[in-house]
């Protein structure tokens, strides 16, 4: 029989506990810097740096009909790769950073579509000039890529947002629970009439309050400084972020379920976050990893989150395109969250 607090008092206790987590968060300058300042600084640094990325191999898109002729004029080499793509597929490859530009043959010579304001574009042009057959060297013309192909900031910002959501949930929920356990606060809270569901819920609600703030700051920064625009539906974008949070919260709870030492807490959080930070296509396309690794990387929660956020914001993708990824993210959250709660130790 449950003789817990009446609903109104229960709600008040839940509100006050959530507020306590938030006060602890906002009164710690270090946490504020890592949550708000660091992602913005990193985005700025990477945004500036990757306006001039140093890429050894340049990938150029060629239309299927031109493919043979172009390959004769500019052969595949160690420094140039040609991929045959058409229409939307070609645009998508440009937006995702999988290709630097496109190449075609006209009557008067080679025609390149490149962003020559970036070092990557300049490098691609130089590499084409170096590899092109004699007689074509003087006839290379360069045009801007289609406007909707986007730039590196369009690629980076959704990735940084995904990274921020992952860190916010795994540190903000998973590590916070471990910290509460190690300070014996979980036990202390659990020894009162407050329900255990409410104790866990308060941690999640505190994070659900701060994460939108962090995300708005980051996106606002990208929009103002780098001119990043939203090409898709805002609701679907927010929905993708929410589904990502479900997956990361589940992972956080699973990671936090048994930990009894601070060293182990840091170890588990780092083991969860660092591989995905590197592999999941936050800073560059995960398709650059070896083919054997890609089937694993593709289904990591952060990869799914970045891909979904990027598809909606940079490509204007709809639910039909990202629905599958969102479903897998929800499944990640459900499975890891349920297992985590089953294993969860309060002491």
């Amino acid at each position: 029989m449950n003789h817990g607090l009446p609903f109104r008092l229960r709600l008040r206790a839940l509100f006050l506990l959530t507020k306590a987590h938030l006060l602890e968060f906002f009164r710690e300058p270090g946490i504020l810097f890592w949550s708000f300042g660091f992602p913005i600084l990193l985005s700025w640094a990477l945004g500036m740096a990757f306006l001039s990325p140093k890429q050894v191999k340049t990938t150029l898109i060629v239309s299927k009909t031109d493919s043979v002729a172009v390959r004769v004029a500019v052969p595949d080499s160690a420094s140039i790769a040609l991929v045959a793509l058409e229409g939307d597929d070609a645009l998508r490859a440009l937006r995702r950073g999988e290709a630097t530009g496109s190449i075609s043959l006209a009557r008067d010579g080679i025609r390149l579509q490149l962003d020559t304001t970036t070092q990557e574009g300049i490098m691609a042009r130089l590499l084409v000039e170096r590899s092109a057959s004699r007689g074509l060297l003087e006839s290379i013309t360069v045009r801007d890529p289609p406007a909707r192909a986007g730039n590196y900031a369009d690629f980076l910002l959704p990735g940084m947002l995904g990274l921020g959501l992952m860190n916010g949930c795994i540190w903000g929920i998973g590590f916070a629970l471990m910290d509460l356990r190690l300070r014996k606060l979980l036990r202390l809270f659990a020894s009162t009439p407050l329900s255990r569901v409410d104790i866990l819920l308060s941690v999640a609600l505190a994070r659900a309050t701060t994460l939108p703030l962090e995300s708005v700051c980051l996106w606002g920064f990208g929009a103002i400084v780098f001119g990043v625009a939203m090409h898709g539906n805002w609701f679907l974008f927010v929905g993708s972020a929410a589904a990502s949070c479900v997956a990361f919260a589940g992972l956080g709870i699973l990671g936090a379920s048994r930990v009894g030492h601070m060293q182990a807490a840091y170890g588990i959080v780092n083991a969860l976050t660092i591989p995905m930070t590197i592999l999941s296509g936050v800073f560059f396309s995960w398709t650059k990893f070896p083919l054997w690794l890609q089937p694993v990387v593709e289904y990591l929660p952060l990869t799914l989150a970045c891909d979904a956020l990027r598809a909606v914001s940079a490509e204007g993708a709809g639910l039909a395109q990202v629905g599958g990824k969102l479903a897998i993210l929800m499944a990640w959250g459900a499975v890891t969250g349920i297992v985590g709660l089953r294993l969860f130790r309060w002491r």
Binding site: A20, T192, P193
Partner: peptide, 18 residues
């Protein structure tokens, strides 16, 4: 909770008991 004030802490724990 180290970054809660004394009165906030007591209001919080009192709320757990309604």
């Amino acid at each position: 909770p180290e970054r809660l004030r004394v009165d906030e802490t007591l209001v919080l724990f009192s709320s757990f008991h309604g």
